[in-house]
Protein backbone atom coordinates (compact mmCIF):
# COMPACT_ATOMS: atom_id res chain seq x y z
CA UNK A 1 0.00 0.00 0.00
CA UNK A 2 1.48 3.27 -1.07
CA UNK A 3 -1.12 5.83 -0.15
CA UNK A 4 -4.24 6.42 1.91
CA UNK A 5 -6.39 6.25 -1.17
CA UNK A 6 -9.69 4.44 -0.80
CA UNK A 7 -9.46 3.41 -4.47
CA UNK A 8 -6.09 1.85 -3.85
CA UNK A 9 -7.42 0.01 -0.81
CA UNK A 10 -10.48 -1.38 -2.55
CA UNK A 11 -8.31 -2.55 -5.44
CA UNK A 12 -5.80 -4.01 -3.02
CA UNK A 13 -8.54 -6.00 -1.28
CA UNK A 14 -9.68 -7.32 -4.62
CA UNK A 15 -12.91 -5.36 -4.48
CA UNK A 16 -14.86 -3.85 -7.36
CA UNK A 17 -14.35 -0.08 -7.37
CA UNK A 18 -17.15 2.40 -8.02
CA UNK A 19 -16.35 6.02 -8.78
CA UNK A 20 -18.37 8.90 -10.08
CA UNK A 21 -17.80 12.53 -10.79
CA UNK A 22 -18.76 15.99 -9.73
CA UNK A 23 -18.41 18.98 -12.01
CA UNK A 24 -17.65 22.14 -9.99
CA UNK A 25 -19.99 25.10 -10.49
CA UNK A 26 -19.43 28.10 -12.72
CA UNK A 27 -19.29 30.33 -9.70
CA UNK A 28 -17.95 30.60 -6.18
CA UNK A 29 -20.80 28.94 -4.29
CA UNK A 30 -19.47 26.01 -2.24
CA UNK A 31 -23.02 24.79 -1.56
CA UNK A 32 -23.29 23.47 -5.12
CA UNK A 33 -20.32 21.20 -4.51
CA UNK A 34 -21.69 20.11 -1.14
CA UNK A 35 -25.09 19.32 -2.63
CA UNK A 36 -23.55 17.19 -5.36
CA UNK A 37 -21.21 15.52 -2.90
CA UNK A 38 -24.09 14.65 -0.57
CA UNK A 39 -25.80 12.74 -3.39
CA UNK A 40 -22.75 10.52 -3.71
CA UNK A 41 -22.13 9.83 -0.02
CA UNK A 42 -21.92 6.13 0.70
CA UNK A 43 -22.60 5.32 -2.93
CA UNK A 44 -19.13 5.50 -4.49
CA UNK A 45 -15.53 4.97 -3.40
CA UNK A 46 -14.19 8.08 -5.04
CA UNK A 47 -15.44 11.25 -6.68
CA UNK A 48 -13.65 12.75 -9.66
CA UNK A 49 -13.64 16.50 -9.66
CA UNK A 50 -13.27 17.79 -13.18
CA UNK A 51 -10.70 20.41 -14.08
CA UNK A 52 -12.35 23.11 -16.17
CA UNK A 53 -13.90 20.40 -18.30
CA UNK A 54 -14.48 21.15 -21.99
CA UNK A 55 -12.30 24.21 -21.34
CA UNK A 56 -15.11 26.09 -19.64
CA UNK A 57 -14.06 28.10 -16.58
CA UNK A 58 -15.33 26.61 -13.35
CA UNK A 59 -14.37 26.59 -9.71
CA UNK A 60 -10.93 25.02 -9.46
CA UNK A 61 -10.81 21.29 -9.09
CA UNK A 62 -8.46 21.60 -6.13
CA UNK A 63 -10.87 23.81 -4.17
CA UNK A 64 -13.86 21.62 -4.91
CA UNK A 65 -11.81 18.58 -3.88
CA UNK A 66 -11.00 20.27 -0.58
CA UNK A 67 -14.69 20.93 0.03
CA UNK A 68 -15.56 17.28 -0.65
CA UNK A 69 -12.69 16.13 1.53
CA UNK A 70 -14.05 18.28 4.31
CA UNK A 71 -17.33 16.37 4.04
CA UNK A 72 -15.52 13.08 4.49
CA UNK A 73 -15.73 12.04 0.86
CA UNK A 74 -12.83 10.71 -1.21
CA UNK A 75 -12.07 13.16 -4.02
CA UNK A 76 -10.03 12.39 -7.14
CA UNK A 77 -8.30 15.51 -8.34
CA UNK A 78 -8.42 15.82 -12.11
CA UNK A 79 -5.53 17.74 -13.59
CA UNK A 80 -5.21 18.81 -17.20
CA UNK A 81 -2.00 19.91 -18.88
CA UNK A 82 -3.70 22.64 -20.85
CA UNK A 83 -3.63 25.43 -18.31
CA UNK A 84 -0.54 25.02 -16.13
CA UNK A 85 3.14 24.51 -16.69
CA UNK A 86 5.31 22.12 -14.73
CA UNK A 87 5.86 24.64 -11.95
CA UNK A 88 2.16 25.16 -11.31
CA UNK A 89 1.28 21.48 -11.73
CA UNK A 90 3.85 20.31 -9.22
CA UNK A 91 2.87 23.06 -6.82
CA UNK A 92 -0.79 22.01 -6.99
CA UNK A 93 0.18 18.37 -6.48
CA UNK A 94 1.93 19.30 -3.25
CA UNK A 95 -1.03 21.44 -2.23
CA UNK A 96 -3.49 18.64 -2.94
CA UNK A 97 -1.56 16.18 -0.80
CA UNK A 98 -1.34 18.78 1.98
CA UNK A 99 -5.14 19.07 1.93
CA UNK A 100 -5.47 15.34 2.39
CA UNK A 101 -6.40 14.53 -1.17
CA UNK A 102 -5.28 11.01 -2.02
CA UNK A 103 -5.92 10.63 -5.74
CA UNK A 104 -4.98 12.44 -8.90
CA UNK A 105 -6.13 11.82 -12.44
CA UNK A 106 -3.69 13.02 -15.12
CA UNK A 107 -5.23 14.26 -18.35
CA UNK A 108 -4.25 16.20 -21.46
CA UNK A 109 -7.45 18.24 -21.33
CA UNK A 110 -9.77 19.29 -24.13
CA UNK A 111 -8.47 21.92 -26.47
CA UNK A 112 -9.54 25.41 -25.40
CA UNK A 113 -11.25 25.83 -28.73
CA UNK A 114 -14.30 24.06 -27.29
CA UNK A 115 -14.64 26.24 -24.24
CA UNK A 116 -15.76 29.69 -23.24
CA UNK A 117 -12.31 31.24 -23.76
CA UNK A 118 -11.19 30.02 -27.19
CA UNK A 119 -9.00 33.15 -27.37
CA UNK A 120 -6.76 31.82 -24.62
CA UNK A 121 -3.23 30.53 -24.97
CA UNK A 122 -2.68 26.90 -24.06
CA UNK A 123 0.28 25.64 -22.10
CA UNK A 124 0.98 21.96 -22.74
CA UNK A 125 4.40 22.24 -21.21
CA UNK A 126 4.15 18.53 -20.43
CA UNK A 127 1.61 15.94 -21.56
CA UNK A 128 -0.55 13.51 -19.62
CA UNK A 129 1.98 10.67 -19.76
CA UNK A 130 4.66 12.99 -18.47
CA UNK A 131 2.32 14.27 -15.75
CA UNK A 132 1.92 10.68 -14.54
CA UNK A 133 5.72 10.42 -14.46
CA UNK A 134 5.88 13.66 -12.56
CA UNK A 135 3.51 12.49 -9.80
CA UNK A 136 5.31 9.15 -9.52
CA UNK A 137 8.64 10.94 -9.30
CA UNK A 138 7.50 13.34 -6.60
CA UNK A 139 6.05 10.51 -4.56
CA UNK A 140 8.43 7.59 -5.14
CA UNK A 141 11.73 9.30 -5.74
CA UNK A 142 11.01 12.41 -3.75
CA UNK A 143 12.36 14.50 -6.61
CA UNK A 144 10.97 17.43 -8.51
CA UNK A 145 11.19 17.36 -12.30
CA UNK A 146 14.03 19.82 -11.98
CA UNK A 147 15.95 17.35 -9.82
CA UNK A 148 15.70 18.98 -6.38
CA UNK A 149 14.55 17.03 -3.39
CA UNK A 150 10.93 17.16 -2.23
CA UNK A 151 10.62 17.75 1.49
CA UNK A 152 7.43 15.90 2.36
CA UNK A 153 6.41 13.69 -0.52
CA UNK A 154 2.86 13.93 -1.88
CA UNK A 155 1.31 10.51 -1.30
CA UNK A 156 -1.04 10.46 -4.25
CA UNK A 157 -2.57 7.46 -5.98
CA UNK A 158 -2.03 8.09 -9.69
CA UNK A 159 -4.68 7.62 -12.31
CA UNK A 160 -5.26 8.50 -15.92
CA UNK A 161 -7.91 8.23 -18.59
CA UNK A 162 -8.00 5.96 -21.60
CA UNK A 163 -10.25 6.11 -24.61
CA UNK A 164 -10.62 2.62 -26.04
CA UNK A 165 -12.56 4.05 -29.00
CA UNK A 166 -10.29 6.79 -30.24
CA UNK A 167 -8.11 6.27 -33.27
CA UNK A 168 -5.75 4.76 -34.23
CA UNK A 169 -7.29 1.70 -32.56
CA UNK A 170 -4.23 -0.54 -32.90
CA UNK A 171 -2.06 1.62 -30.65
CA UNK A 172 -4.69 2.22 -27.98
CA UNK A 173 -3.40 -0.59 -25.76
CA UNK A 174 0.20 0.43 -26.43
CA UNK A 175 -0.67 3.93 -25.33
CA UNK A 176 -2.14 2.58 -22.12
CA UNK A 177 1.08 0.62 -21.76
CA UNK A 178 3.01 3.87 -21.84
CA UNK A 179 0.83 5.30 -19.10
CA UNK A 180 1.35 2.21 -16.95
CA UNK A 181 5.06 2.35 -17.60
CA UNK A 182 5.00 5.99 -16.55
CA UNK A 183 3.52 4.96 -13.21
CA UNK A 184 -0.24 4.99 -13.68
CA UNK A 185 -2.07 2.85 -11.09
CA UNK A 186 -5.68 3.19 -12.14
CA UNK A 187 -7.49 4.01 -15.33
CA UNK A 188 -10.92 5.38 -15.97
CA UNK A 189 -12.10 4.85 -19.51
CA UNK A 190 -14.16 6.99 -21.82
CA UNK A 191 -17.89 6.11 -21.67
CA UNK A 192 -18.53 2.70 -23.11
CA UNK A 193 -21.57 1.97 -25.22
CA UNK A 194 -19.99 -0.44 -27.67
CA UNK A 195 -19.22 -3.28 -25.27
CA UNK A 196 -17.92 -5.57 -28.04
CA UNK A 197 -15.32 -3.07 -29.11
CA UNK A 198 -14.36 -2.43 -25.51
CA UNK A 199 -13.98 -6.17 -24.98
CA UNK A 200 -11.52 -6.34 -27.86
CA UNK A 201 -9.56 -3.47 -26.34
CA UNK A 202 -9.53 -5.23 -22.96
CA UNK A 203 -8.15 -8.33 -24.66
CA UNK A 204 -5.30 -6.27 -26.04
CA UNK A 205 -4.79 -4.77 -22.58
CA UNK A 206 -4.74 -8.17 -20.88
CA UNK A 207 -2.39 -9.58 -23.51
CA UNK A 208 0.10 -6.99 -22.37
CA UNK A 209 -0.65 -7.80 -18.74
CA UNK A 210 -1.58 -4.19 -18.09
CA UNK A 211 -4.69 -5.13 -16.11
CA UNK A 212 -2.44 -6.62 -13.45
CA UNK A 213 -0.37 -3.51 -13.01
CA UNK A 214 -3.18 -1.01 -13.14
CA UNK A 215 -6.82 -1.08 -12.01
CA UNK A 216 -9.09 -0.57 -14.98
CA UNK A 217 -12.39 1.14 -14.25
CA UNK A 218 -14.84 1.02 -17.12
CA UNK A 219 -16.62 4.31 -17.79
CA UNK A 220 -20.36 4.63 -18.32
CA UNK A 221 -22.69 7.57 -18.91
CA UNK A 222 -26.48 7.17 -18.79
CA UNK A 223 -28.44 8.81 -21.60
CA UNK A 224 -31.06 11.28 -20.46
CA UNK A 225 -32.75 11.42 -23.85
CA UNK A 226 -32.51 9.91 -27.32
CA UNK A 227 -31.31 13.32 -28.45
CA UNK A 228 -28.35 13.12 -26.12
CA UNK A 229 -27.44 9.67 -27.47
CA UNK A 230 -27.54 11.03 -30.98
CA UNK A 231 -25.54 14.10 -30.06
CA UNK A 232 -22.80 12.05 -28.45
CA UNK A 233 -22.52 9.81 -31.46
CA UNK A 234 -22.33 12.70 -33.91
CA UNK A 235 -20.47 15.43 -32.04
CA UNK A 236 -18.15 13.97 -29.46
CA UNK A 237 -14.86 12.95 -31.05
CA UNK A 238 -13.79 9.46 -30.10
CA UNK A 239 -17.23 8.32 -28.90
CA UNK A 240 -18.72 5.09 -30.19
CA UNK A 241 -22.49 4.80 -29.77
CA UNK A 242 -23.96 1.82 -31.63
CA UNK A 243 -27.03 2.52 -33.76
CA UNK A 244 -29.17 -0.10 -32.05
CA UNK A 245 -28.68 1.71 -28.76
CA UNK A 246 -29.92 4.95 -30.27
CA UNK A 247 -32.81 3.06 -31.81
CA UNK A 248 -33.66 1.63 -28.39
CA UNK A 249 -33.71 5.12 -26.86
CA UNK A 250 -35.85 6.45 -29.71
CA UNK A 251 -38.16 3.46 -29.37
CA UNK A 252 -39.61 4.64 -26.06
CA UNK A 253 -41.84 7.62 -25.36
CA UNK A 254 -40.09 10.88 -24.47
CA UNK A 255 -41.06 10.83 -20.81
CA UNK A 256 -39.78 7.25 -20.49
CA UNK A 257 -36.41 7.89 -22.12
CA UNK A 258 -34.57 8.84 -18.95
CA UNK A 259 -35.70 5.61 -17.35
CA UNK A 260 -34.61 3.65 -20.42
CA UNK A 261 -31.25 5.41 -20.34
CA UNK A 262 -30.71 4.27 -16.75
CA UNK A 263 -31.78 0.75 -17.68
CA UNK A 264 -29.26 0.62 -20.53
CA UNK A 265 -26.59 1.94 -18.20
CA UNK A 266 -27.25 -0.71 -15.55
CA UNK A 267 -27.27 -3.48 -18.17
CA UNK A 268 -24.00 -2.16 -19.56
CA UNK A 269 -22.44 -2.23 -16.09
CA UNK A 270 -23.55 -5.82 -15.65
CA UNK A 271 -21.92 -6.79 -18.94
CA UNK A 272 -18.75 -4.86 -18.18
CA UNK A 273 -18.36 -6.59 -14.82
CA UNK A 274 -18.10 -9.91 -16.63
CA UNK A 275 -15.16 -8.80 -18.78
CA UNK A 276 -11.85 -10.17 -17.51
CA UNK A 277 -9.58 -7.46 -16.19
CA UNK A 278 -12.28 -4.89 -15.40
CA UNK A 279 -11.74 -3.83 -11.78
CA UNK A 280 -14.41 -1.26 -11.34
CA UNK A 281 -16.86 1.17 -12.85
CA UNK A 282 -16.73 4.91 -13.32
CA UNK A 283 -20.13 6.53 -13.63
CA UNK A 284 -20.19 9.89 -15.37
CA UNK A 285 -23.74 11.12 -14.92
CA UNK A 286 -23.27 14.54 -16.44
CA UNK A 287 -25.29 17.06 -14.38
CA UNK A 288 -27.38 14.11 -13.24
CA UNK A 289 -25.61 13.20 -10.02
CA UNK A 290 -28.93 12.38 -8.31
CA UNK A 291 -29.20 9.25 -10.46
CA UNK A 292 -25.88 7.72 -9.47
CA UNK A 293 -27.19 6.12 -6.28
CA UNK A 294 -30.05 4.54 -8.21
CA UNK A 295 -27.67 3.14 -10.84
CA UNK A 296 -25.21 1.75 -8.30
CA UNK A 297 -28.05 0.16 -6.36
CA UNK A 298 -29.70 -1.35 -9.43
CA UNK A 299 -26.35 -2.75 -10.54
CA UNK A 300 -26.07 -4.54 -7.19
CA UNK A 301 -22.99 -2.63 -6.14
CA UNK A 302 -24.25 -1.53 -2.72
CA UNK A 303 -23.20 -1.34 0.02
CA UNK A 304 -19.73 -0.01 -0.66
CA UNK A 305 -16.91 -1.62 1.30
CA UNK A 306 -15.97 0.00 4.62
CA UNK A 307 -12.45 1.37 4.42
CA UNK A 308 -10.64 2.83 7.39
Amino acid sequence: MKTNSVIEKVLEQGGFVVTSECGPPRGADPEVVRRKGELLRGVVDGVNVTDNQTSVVRMSSLSACAILKGMGLEPILQMVCRDRNRIALQSDLLGAAALGINNVLCLSGDHQKFGDHPQGKNVYDIDSVQLIQTVARLRDEGKFLGGDEVKGRPMLFVGAAANPFADPFEIRAARLGKKVKAGCEFIQTQCIYNVERFTRWMEMVCERGLHERCGILAGVTPFKTAGMANYMKKNVPGMDVPDDMIARMKGVAKEKQAEEGIKICVETIERLREIPGVRGIHIMAIEWEEKVAEIVKAAGLLPRPEIQ
Partner: peptide
Protein backbone atom coordinates in the same frame (compact mmCIF):
# COMPACT_ATOMS: atom_id res chain seq x y z
CA UNK B 1 -1.76 20.17 -27.90
CA UNK B 2 1.90 19.65 -28.79
CA UNK B 3 1.70 16.23 -27.14
CA UNK B 4 4.99 14.37 -27.11
CA UNK B 5 3.21 11.15 -26.18
CA UNK B 6 0.02 11.25 -28.19
CA UNK B 7 -2.52 10.75 -29.50
CA UNK B 8 -5.07 12.15 -27.09
CA UNK B 9 -8.53 10.68 -26.80
CA UNK B 10 -9.91 13.13 -29.33
CA UNK B 11 -8.23 11.61 -32.36
CA UNK B 12 -10.95 10.35 -34.65
Amino acid sequence: KSLLNGPCGGSS
